[in-house]
Design a protein around this nucleic acid. Structure first.
Length: 598
RNA sequence: GCCCCGAUAGCUCAGCUGGAUAGAGCAACUGCCUUCUAAGCAGUAGGUCAUGGGUUCGAAUCCCGUUCGGGGUACCA
């Protein structure tokens, strides 16, 4: 039984014995003691004043005496105002350290055969432009979330839905035909996704020009947007694509493959991956069928012009279009089809969509629609709604060229890491390949930590000038701490020091900071659990930072290898090794690697 | 208009289901490398937790109003 539960039970006994009162659980408020007070756990006694009719100090003292008497672990107590601070014997915490060190996968629960299966959808790019900072947040959150769920004993299937068809793709295709000189990415030496992205931008430039020309001739803006030749041609392409025109489909495949090659390179660099990829081109027809089935069942309505609608006003939502009057599908049609396929392919217990909060309404609607279509899992889908990444100038807009490109950003950060490491001269002993590998690790550590440490639900600001930092509350700070620990451990091995007898450690004298660290290590499994329940990588990130920070404080004024007292030295070694392990595991849950030297 | 979300130090962010004197980092200033990695450590300064009320023994946290900001409300995705 966990010590917290033990204390709680004992407090319940105390209330029974001392005041003859059966306390409901929520009246016993046990929390960990704030740093500025003596103790490990604190019982808030204010709520108990009503039942005993004594003043808080008296109650606290009486309960304190009771607990000290009854629980071996409770070593002493003190009372400050209405707070009963309990001090737990340090051997208890040292035992926890031993558990953490000897446990193969500390803090991790592995999935067993009847573990629930969670599918996590993330990334979900369009194939007409390269990935940008917004996708980075999405990818990092999706990947980390998956790791955290796995660590909580779930089976996880990571999935991606690629929006590979539609008018936007046709725009790029048309652009390639008309203004792209029929080049290839290889020929011009560009990454495929960037190559196609530029074609898309070119389309928009031409389109804008045409609109301006038409408006100069007296068309209204709306008419001009409708009538511009290039948009009409793009629509033609879409019709031909849907009709299965061989040339169009071939071009579409070729261009998408260019993009996929580019995406794969970016995914690889970011260290994210998928177990199963769905393509909209393979799911949208299923969606259409489902919608038509809904019409037959009478849950959706088809208007005279052929368009299909769902009336969701009873669910406090609006009327929603499901199929256009020309019979083509919209965004949500595709999501219906994809959902159906997924549940056919996998035995999904829980579906999580990692998609920005601008689509909150969309997912509310999707849940209701799936439910109406008769899928029991529809209402249970979870939209993991994360905030936007803003730039100092405001929101990123692809059309206005204010996006931060994913590849560029990563490359820039690697360069900063490289410059810094070379200036510090720390990696000179490594081979060029190893050094380069480390620069990347640090750069990505900085980027990933920067993004994952903030509460996913909130919008966040990324300032390219200032956000690239490697000092303070950053990924590299934590990575550095790990490298530092490994350095100590390497030296310990050189000196032939190792911890074999755990028993002798239990009587070690420990400092305040050491105890803080022991408690912090003992906390890790609970943090992983909480991160899983709250779906929050930020909790892991903040924990890792606190742990690293406290280790550095410890490191600064506690000799480890040079400690003359053998017991103390061994305890510090074990503490260091364990913290190194926890940091590595924790950062691993964020998808961040930690180097052994930096 | 209607619906959702947010506001904590100059800046970026923590602050768990209400608990003790609201915390970090960056930026500014000051110390610490002959000692296990200074991408570090220690210190100074910086706050009317947007604002007005309410609930409570106790509110940054819960409820209501106001102001400001963001998003949604498409035959775009």
């Amino acid at each position: 039984m966990k010590i917290e539960e033990k204390i709680q039970n004992a407090v319940a006994d105390a209330l029974q014995v001392l005041y003859g009162y059966d306390a409901p659980e929520n009246l016993i408020q046990l929390q960990s003691t704030r740093k500025d007070f003596e103790g490990d756990f604190t019982l808030v006694v204010f709520p108990l004043t009503k039942i005993s009719r004594k003043n808080p100090e008296v109650i606290a003292t009486e309960i304190g005496e009771f607990l000290k008497e009854k629980l071996d672990e409770v070593y002493s107590f003190n009372v400050v105002k209405g707070f009963l601070n309990l001090e737990v014997d340090s051997s208890y915490w040292i035992g926890k350290l031993q558990d953490a060190w000897t446990c193969e996968l500390y803090g991790i629960i592995e999935a067993d055969d009847d573990a629930e299966l969670v599918m996590v959808e993330y990334s979900s790019p369009n194939t007409n432009k390269p990935l940008h900072l917004g996708h980075i947040r999405n990818n990092l959150l999706g990947f980390s979330l998956s790791e955290i769920l796995k660590a909580n004993g779930f089976k996880v299937v990571k999935t991606n839905i690629v929006n590979d068809r539609g008018i936007h793709i046709c725009k790029s295709m048309l652009s390639w035909q008309k203004w792209g000189n029929r080049q290839t990415p290889e020929a011009v030496g560009k990454k495929g996704d960037h190559f196609v992205g530029e074609l898309y931008v070119e389309f928009n430039n031409q389109y804008k020009k045409e609109i301006a020309e038409l408006m100069a001739k007296g068309f209204s803006q709306k008419e001009a947007e409708e009538q511009a030749p290039s948009i009409r041609e793009a629509r033609q392409l879409l019709l031909r694509w849907e009709a299965g025109d061989k040339d169009v489909v071939e071009l579409w495949q070729t261009m998408n493959n260019w993009v996929y090659e580019g995406f794969d390179a970016t995914y690889k660099k970011m260290g994210v991956n998928f177990d199963k990829i769905y393509y909209e081109s393979e799911t949208y027809l299923v969606g259409k069928q489902e919608v038509m089935r809904g019409v037959e069942k009478g849950i959706f309505q088809q208007k005279d012009d052929g368009s299909v609608w769902a009336d969701l006003t009873d669910d406090r939502l609006d009327k929603k279009l499901l199929l256009r009057s020309d019979g083509t599908s919209v965004y949500i049609t595709q999501d219906i089809g994809t959902a159906k396929l997924r549940f056919k392919d996998f035995d999904i217990d829980k579906m999580i969509y990692v998609v920005g909060n601008e689509q909150n309404y969309h997912f509310q609607v999707l849940a209701v629609l799936l439910d109406k279509l008769g899928y029991s899992w529809g209402k249970g889908l979870h939209h993991f709604s994360y905030g936007m990444v803003e730039l100092p100038g405001g929101k990123m807009k692809s059309r206005e060229g204010t996006v931060v490109d994913a590849d560029d950003l990563i490359e820039e950060m690697v360069q900063v890491a490289r410059d810094m490491a070379q200036e510090l001269g720390k990696l000179d002993a490594l081979t060029p390949d190893e050094a380069e590998r480390t620069y990347e690790m640090i750069a990505l550590g900085a980027l990933k930590y920067f993004i994952l440490k903030v509460d996913p639900k909130k919008n966040m600001l990324f300032n390219p000038e200032e956000s690239i930092d490697f000092n303070g509350n950053t990924g590299p700070f934590i990575q550095y701490t790990h490298a530092r620990i490994q350095s100590v451990l390497r030296k310990a091995i050189e000196k032939n020091l190792s911890v074999t007898d755990y028993q002798e450690l239990f009587s070690s004298e420990i400092s305040f900071k050491e105890k803080e660290l022991l408690k912090r290590v003992a906390q890790f499994p609970a943090i992983v659990k909480e991160a899983g329940l709250n779906l929050s990588p930020a909790l892991i990130a903040n924990y890792c930072y606190e742990l690293a920070k406290e280790y550095n404080q410890f490191y600064h004024n506690h000799p480890i290898l040079a400690e003359s007292d053998k017991q103390r030295r061994n305890l510090r070694l074990l503490l260091s090794a364990t913290i190194g392990k926890v940091v590595k595991t924790g950062m691993g849950l964020l998808g961040i690697e930690v180097p052994d030297r930096m």
